[in-house]
Design a protein around this nucleic acid. Structure first.
Lengths: 226, 226
DNA sequence: AATAGAATTTAGTGGTATCTAAAAATAATA
DNA sequence: TATTATTTTTAGATACCACTAAATTCTATT
């Protein structure tokens, strides 16, 4: 087994790799709230353990072994998030923080039991795909809500889970995964977006709309899909 | 918050204090599988933090503050054990090991949710009392099954949870907490004990009978209750 | 190409918790 | 009481992982 720190770094590397492509020492240190020098030290250790490859000043990349572990931790994390939400009624803006601690102490046996109790789910409460046990993960092609145009309808696919305030904010308007909505208007230059969910209308700030990812777009063409 | 190590030591001190009365450096080191020197070091640290009092070569004793924390951890541990057994069907010989890891990462909020989901229980799967939130715990007055006499009936109150093999062994004969049984015969000099549970008879080794605690004794007098 | 600025790494430290080996204190026994 | 045996503590080392401060390397700009 690996230390909690190692698991945290591997998970962070996977997530940055997915969002930004390149994983720099600084991006790692920022995501984990440690000093850059600490990240350098851990990168060195991960390299020695063949969990990442590293070229000085060029960033790190997960090896096959490293990615396997990352996805195991992410699987733990997302299964736990869903379990807490479903079985214990924990609100979706709190499950992330709890899962951050639990993910490191989940045995394979309990992982299986939770998985079965939940009916072998494929998405966590924020819509993020749950990796399978063998280390495969669904790649989403959803786009930010902010890229839609007035008149379009879409379905929420995934909401970024790193900011509880954001989750509470979009939760208040009912923008949970699988929820259908329509863009009534969208102001230029990253202005506010008026949307209709069920029967009620809401105004969504552009900052938030950047972190709500949607799919199943219907209506006139969107910018991003051209 | 305290470190995981500190929590482990406090819990161990409580348990040894309860079983043996005196908590020596060696008993601590043995229970936690660390070198005696390590226990000495931690005792020093706990003393400085006013969680235990310590007289050289005389053993340690929990302070009020120390006992409060111990009982919080034990509450976590036992709630988790019961939750795993009830909600996820984990067998009673496995819940201890899992709870050892989980007890350190359980938030107050989740503690409350589990407590409520279980209907505010008072005993864990092994019959051990679950401390209340305010740090009170039921004191059991049950006695070892080994101290019963032929002809007596009793009810299982608690089974020691530290050895999974023991739990599987007594579980096979159905000796779970609240189970009524009758002693058919008991051989002298710590000999085997013949018991009847429900409609079937079993032979129980004396080593195991030492760790099954019973209450509600009916029939001729037992040695221990005289 | 030189240089300023940013990113990264090295060097040295501190805290936590463990270990082994040896010394010291206490308890048991002859 | 003196000696032996046991228990406990001290001393010194190691692993992990963070930190700050300073040096290095790369990048971008003039």
């Amino acid at each position: 087994m690996y230390t909690e720190s190692i698991e945290d770094y591997l998970k962070a590397i996977y997530e940055i790799q997915k969002e930004n492509g390149k994983v720099s020492t600084n991006s790692l240190s920022e995501m984990l709230s440690v000093a850059p020098a600490s990240a350098t030290g851990m990168i060195k250790k991960l390299s020695e353990k063949k969990l990442v490859t590293h070229k000085r000043y060029q960033g790190v990349k997960l090896t096959k072994a490293g990615q396997k572990i990352s996805l195991e931790i992410i699987r733990h994390h997302r299964l736990i998030e869903l379990y807490l939400a479903e079985a214990l009624g924990v609100p979706w803006d709190q499950v992330h923080e709890e899962a951050e601690k639990w993910e490191h102490v989940l045995s394979e046996d309990l992982e299986d039991r939770m998985d079965a109790a939940l009916g072998y789910p494929t998405r966590d409460p924020h819509g993020s795909p749950i990796p399978s046990r063998d280390g495969t993960i669904l790649e989403l092609d959803s786009i930010p809500l902010a890229d839609l145009r007035a008149g379009q309808s879409a379905v929420v696919d995934e909401v970024s889970d790193h900011d509880p305030d954001l989750l509470r904010y979009v939760g208040k308007m009912g923008l949970y995964p699988k929820t259908k909505f329509k863009v009534l208007s969208i102001e230029p230059f990253n202005g506010p977006i008026k949307i209709k969910v069920e029967k009620s209308e809401h105004i969504l700030g552009p900052g938030a709309a950047q972190y709500v990812f949607v799919t199943d777009i219907k209506g006139s063409k969107s910018e991003a899909s051209q």
